[in-house]
Amino acid sequence: MIRVQIVDDHPLVVEGLERIINDSGIARIIGKAYSLKDCWRMLARATADVLLLDIGLPDGNGIDACAQILKKYPGVKILMLTSYAELNVITQSLENGALGYVLKNSTVEEIIEGICTVALDERFLCEEVDLLLRTKKEDTVSLSRRERELLKLIAEGHTMNTISEIMYIGYETVKSYRKNIMTKLQVPNTAALIRYAVERKIV
């Protein structure tokens, strides 16, 4: 049974979480705190396997507290559970040591899965946050003019030999370009490359 503690300043949220977690049969609540001051007192008495930590608290913010808690209690696995879906808030929380990030509008299944995942010392992001981070990562990918040209030709269905002739480069160079593009975009095959090109209207 995974032992869980909650830090959130909304009693109704805490009560709801306590009910769904205890009813899961997988985890149970062993402590609740409604402020950072209460949190430190709770942790001094006992630490859980997983700490659900809100960000907007009456006496501080959970992002800074995350790093401070892990410094004193490195064995605690922190899962941020909050309403903040801003990219900078998410990335700062993860940089400060949070193993997971779940929004309060997540499904019960996602919250329980998040608890189970971080308890195993593995990263967990709810679907909305995961999509946000992946979209941002894709937006920052920069392809050169030649790479975009080659991607367009691949998406149009040209063979490697034909692309070599159209671009006036060797066959091995075409293969090298394709490999570099796949690495940059983190896609596994040509079909995924074509899908990427179509979705972004490169063709």
Rank of each mutant, 00 (worst) to 15 (best):
V4A: 06
S144R: 13
I90C: 00
D139S: 14
Y168R: 14
K175D: 04
L51M: 13
Y171F: 04
A65M: 12
L185C: 07
I2V: 13
V13C: 08
K104M: 05
K77M: 03
L57G: 08
R134I: 01
T162Y: 07
K179E: 12
Y177F: 15
L132M: 12
Y73V: 13
D64W: 07
L143S: 08
T47A: 05
R123I: 05
N189C: 12
D139K: 15
P58D: 11
Y34I: 04
E18N: 13
N189I: 08
K72W: 05
L87Y: 12
M80T: 03
G75P: 12
D59V: 10
Q5N: 03
I55S: 02
E128S: 07
I55Q: 03
R41Q: 15
M80A: 02
A98Y: 01
G56P: 00
G31E: 14
R3N: 08
R195N: 10
S164K: 03
V141W: 06
M80H: 02
D130I: 00
P58M: 09
R3F: 02
I2E: 08
D9S: 09
I21W: 11
W40G: 03
K152T: 13
I29Y: 06
Y171I: 02
D8L: 01
R195T: 11
I2K: 07
Q68P: 00
E127G: 05
